[in-house]
Design a protein around this nucleic acid. Structure first.
Lengths: 211, 211
DNA sequence: TTAATGGCTTAGAATTTCTAATTCATGACG
DNA sequence: CGTCATGAATTAGAAATTCTAAGCCATTAA
């Protein structure tokens, strides 16, 4: 029996937006721009012929239809998610969701991490982020910054260095202790080292930054 | 809580292929070419890191992993499908306008579809038609034929078989992808199956037709 | 040995999806 | 009131994905 299905990516966009009641935050979760989410949801509404959200100037409200739809979709996605985990334990070698600071992203190659051999099998495309709370909350797995910041309880290592307007600056990798040194982290770190070609000397550097 | 989801279109391709145990027939259901389905599934297997099918020279076999995965996915898709119908009734309350080929109409009961219980609440009385362009243009919703025809971008499935002068022939149902599997289509198909009393097996003989 | 079948592969085309930039409406605040 | 900041809507064009078409291969059947 074949299924009648609306556009699946639109559903995913809707599900995330509805959980956050925000295209903006949904976009961050999905790793795309808010405009993309807005378009996906709009397209979904178009094919369904109903409105799922009421758009407010500062956010979203679910319509009645939307709130009837959401839990079902969440359930379906949860089934997919769980059964996928069960079926492909290889995914526990899952890709890490990485955050990169605005500043640092200017120094990364245009379509990093795609440009690094094999790196995309270890990390997803990064979102813009500065906040280690995102790591604590599990929203992202790791964070790359140009400054050392206050990260009690999190691993925070200088992993490479770049030259910014004549002065050397370190790249710091923030992640949970448990993730430090896992294969994905190692792949990430060594790709950064390669990219910026000069491995960081070991003990000196890490401390010339403010919090 | 965000979901870690594999490529959704790949999942749909896998689910259809697994039901049919054939990329070729799945492709018809999905309205694309077999190559496209093959690619989607392969890509899915790649991101999962496991094989879902064993490819035989003449068809497919589910791997252990694949057969554990299939029922869960079917369940998820069914949830999506049902909740979508519930949520967008505008799309589902409408009777489908059906076309039937001259040839086939000779084999249908005299006052079909009136003779089939409940079918008239799902489809209107059919017009005579052969041309899938009418489906593309939206002039009709579905087309019943005795031959497989070229229908790029449309679903085209063998749904029942009749005996025509000693030889078995299939009845093909052409409709837009979006309409495949909707409640009306299901009602139509199952009434045909009932009428001609011999359900069509899924992968085997539905395919000895050329386009 | 020949024909047919169904999956695989590949380049390039077609389509979808995304980004980046701008616009708009609202609410907060001095 | 102005001025800002926020978040959604809307574009054109770029980027990425997905599809087709055509040829290949191994297998089966006649």
């Amino acid at each position: 029996m074949s299924h009648r299905l609306p556009p699946l990516n639109g559903l995913r966009a809707f599900e995330a937006s509805a959980r956050h009641l925000s295209f903006k935050t949904a976009a961050r979760e999905l790793g795309v721009t808010p405009g993309a989410v807005s378009q996906q949801v709009k397209n979904l509404e178009g094919t369904l012929g109903v409105n799922l959200f009421r758009r407010l100037p500062r956010g979203l409200l679910l319509t009645e239809v939307g709130s009837a739809y959401l839990p079902e979709l969440s359930r379906a996605f949860r089934i997919i998610s769980k059964s996928t985990e069960a079926v492909a334990p290889a995914l526990t070698n899952r890709k890490l969701q990485i955050g990169v600071s605005e500043k640092l992203s200017q120094y990364l190659p245009a379509n990093w991490p795609k440009c690094c051999v094999d790196l995309l099998s270890h990390v997803t495309r990064p979102i813009k982020a500065n906040d280690p709370e995102l790591v604590r909350s599990g929203e992202i797995d790791g964070l790359l910054l140009l400054e050392r910041i206050h990260t009690r309880g999190l691993s925070n290592e200088a992993v490479a260095s770049i030259c910014d307007q004549g002065t050397d600056r370190n790249i710091f990798f923030v992640c949970s202790i448990g993730l430090a040194g896992c294969s994905q982290s190692r792949a990430l770190v060594s790709s950064l080292v390669d990219t910026f070609s000069e491995p960081v000397a070991n003990a000196s550097f890490a401390d010339n930054e403010r919090d």
